[in-house]
């Protein structure tokens, strides 16, 4: 608790961090604004909330997917909180004042964990309230089914944030770390393209997704698959066109294991970097 307190104290006295954290949670709340989207244009009467996106248990899937997109916003906070320790040389001062390198890393991890838990709780509450208002089904057994999406959400965030943590410790500068993150996304995309193109030639028995699911960013996005094609409206359209498709939307154990393994690796690398480097 002392370590968490230290980290929150550092963040709490920085106006920019406060603003970003506040903004992040505000954005999560703003998803409820989605419910008020109502387009009335002549004969077309579109009311998003009534398209079924807030139906239990689909809402768990939809909300966790949409709100997880906001994680990038919070990544800035994490990258900045490490970058500042380097640029202000306060990391050095913290160590001199008697914080061990392990404690330093743990204080950051606890803060990340605290934010992941807060964020997950917030998503849970918002979904519960929105679902309560708009859902067509309100039986408890339906309301509380598919809750594994919340677990997947928490893991997805934690894995992503530990990735940011490692990058910022590795690169030391906030802006470059974010740049590298964007580059990495790009890198995975290019790899996916290459795999699509060449993999079959060399390993005919392996499918692209079998390999690609192990890439860190893709592993995170695999935790919660896109929910849009699951919407009944879209499924209906697909069926009408005669191109009905089925897809596994569940949170798979394998994707959780992969994501958690990456997290562990990121934390380990972060620690080794801290330990080995001279300041």
């Amino acid at each position: 608790m002392r370590l968490l307190y230290i980290e929150l104290y550092k963040l709490g006295h920085s106006t920019i961090s406060k603003l970003l954290i506040f903004g992040y949670f505000l954005l999560i709340l703003s998803i409820s604004i989605l419910s008020t989207i109502k387009v009335e244009f002549g004969p077309i009467n579109f009311y998003l909330a009534e398209q079924g996106i807030f139906n239990f248990p689909y809402i768990w899937h939809f909300n966790t997917f949409i709100i997880a997109l906001l994680k990038l916003f919070f990544a800035v906070v994490i990258v900045a909180m490490i970058g500042n320790e380097y640029s202000n040389r306060t990391l050095k001062q913290n160590l001199i004042d008697g914080l061990s390198k392990g404690e330093f890393l743990r204080s950051k991890l606890y803060a990340i964990l605290a934010f992941v838990i807060t964020s997950t709780l917030l998503v849970f509450l918002i979904s519960l309230i929105l679902g309560g208002i708009y859902s067509d089904y309100n039986e408890w057994s339906i309301v509380f089914s598919d809750l594994e999406y919340l677990l997947a959400y928490a893991i997805k965030l934690f894995c992503f944030f530990t990735f940011c943590l490692m990058l910022s410790i590795l690169i030391k500068r906030a802006a470059f770390a974010l740049g590298f993150l964007a580059f990495w996304q790009f890198f995975e995309g290019i790899n996916f393209g290459l795999l699509n193109w060449k993999l079959e030639t060399y390993f005919p028995t392996v499918t692209v997704n079998q390999v690609f699911q192990f890439y860190p960013l893709n592993a995170m996005s695999n935790l919660i698959k896109e929910p849009f094609s699951r919407l009944s409206a879209i499924q209906n359209i697909a069926n009408e066109i005669g191109d009905g498709f089925s897809k596994d939307y569940n949170v798979t154990l394998l994707s959780i294991v992969i994501a958690l393994s990456w997290s562990a690796l990121f934390i380990l690398i972060s620690y080794q970097l801290l330990k080995r480097r001279d300041l």
């Binding site: 550092k10 006295h13 202000n88 306060t90």
Partner: peptide, 8 residues
């Protein structure tokens, strides 16, 4: 060099 959090 004295190292402190500049915003505090």
């Amino acid at each position: 060099r004295p190292n402190f959090y500049p915003y505090m």
